[in-house]
């Protein structure tokens, strides 16, 4: 089995999930009876990082594409550079971290190569018929088991947190140049700039207690129960993405993959189902309380305490109970 990993980097630093992808690829190699694990690193001015990776992890080689065309990420540049090299080497698997950047171009790369695509893998196991991969479906409410069929390269991405970065095996690999004509790997767009969303006026990362509202709250005019509970607790108010998209709260209150990542002492999730895009931003919380009318909501599986019920009845009762407790 020949396995490649496409590492993601920005400004000469590895993306946190790149190390998780190394761990996943090493695990896949071990499960399929050994074989080679090689990493690919794309960018511009990344010689120092490439040396660090080659000296840091148990890899066959680190194939480096260091070119001004790849200094800033564009699908045009990345797909062209990777297509030529993957087509030439024909690895069985190419493992990506499931980041916003990977998802932006992986499917396109697979289409151009005639390769297969298996995004957002959280685990794999082996049975009599071969490998069986797990991935979330229906907003994380269920887990699907997926089998790969047919011949040829498969592109696979691994979900954040599914493999521990610390379990990536240390060692070293040979530093080589990625095959292909990088001068022809031209950006297919002009990058005009990068801006901060909403300016991050509110820093939720320092909050000790957070009351987070989800779609289940039901409307901007129904946020009172959240505000009352937050006031009783002295907590910050936050939200999952649907609340922000609906304009019930400003964008700088968003927790999750496109918002802030928090780790308070107490996180109360009200009317939040627990899609992975939200939970990556709050799973470091010390104590999580979930209130949701759906007992099957995934949020309960990573909470310490749960109440199944209508948040518009539970939250006022909770606010009262907290005020009573504080008077004691």
């Amino acid at each position: 089995m020949k396995i490649w990993i496409v590492l993601e980097q920005k400004d000469g630093e590895l993306h946190r999930m790149s190390r998780e992808a190394i761990a996943a690829a090493q695990g896949l190699a071990a499960a399929t009876g050994g074989g080679s694990v090689d990493a690919v690193l794309l960018g511009g001015g990344i010689a120092t990082l490439a040396e660090k990776v080659a000296g840091g992890y148990a890899l066959g080689s680190v194939r480096v594409a260091d070119h001004p065309n790849l200094a800033a990420y564009t699908p045009g540049g990345y797909v062209a550079a990777l297509s030529a090299a993957i087509a030439a080497a024909a690895p069985d698997w190419v493992v990506f971290p499931h980041t916003y950047q990977s998802v932006d171009y992986m499917a396109r790369l697979a289409q151009g190569l005639g390769a297969g695509l298996l995004p957002e893998v959280t685990a794999f196991e082996e049975d009599a018929q071969g490998l069986l991969f797990s991935r979330p479906v229906l907003g994380g409410k269920l887990v699907a088991k997926v089998r790969v069929r047919g011949e040829g390269t498969m592109l696979l991405s691994v979900q954040s947190g599914a493999w521990a970065a610390e379990s990536a095996q240390a060692g070293s690999g040979e530093l080589v140049t990625l095959d292909g004509d990088l001068a022809a790997a031209k950006p297919d767009r002009e990058i005009l700039g990068v801006e901060e969303v909403g300016g991050e006026q509110v820093d939720l990362t320092k909050a000790e207690v957070i009351v987070a509202a989800g779609r289940g709250v039901g409307g901007a005019d129904k946020m009172g129960v959240i505000e009352d509970l937050a006031a009783a607790l002295g907590a910050e108010i936050a939200a999952s993405r649907p609340v922000i998209d609906n304009g019930w709260l400003p964008r700088d209150r968003q927790i999750g993959s496109s918002g802030q990542t928090v780790a308070p002492k107490l996180y109360i999730a009200a009317g939040i189902s627990g899609a992975i895009q939200h939970t990556v931003g709050m799973k470091g919380s010390a104590v999580v309380v979930a209130i949701n009318k759906d007992p099957g909501a995934p949020i309960f599986s990573l909470s310490n305490y749960g109440i199944v019920g209508d948040l518009h009845e539970v939250l006022p009762a909770l606010t009262k109970a907290i005020r009573r407790a504080k008077e004691l």
């Binding site: 390769a115 069986l132 479906v137 699907a144 909470s303 310490n304 749960g306 009845e313 539970v314």
Partner: peptide
């Protein structure tokens, strides 16, 4: 297609929340 969904299941929630029963007032307390 190169991939096939063979089964789906609800995630195991053994290590999940302790669900507090009762009417809203009781549960909140």
């Amino acid at each position: 297609s190169r991939i096939e969904v063979v089964s789906v299941a609800f995630p195991e929630s053994g290590a999940g929340a302790e669900i507090i029963e009762g009417d809203p007032e009781e549960a909140a307390q």
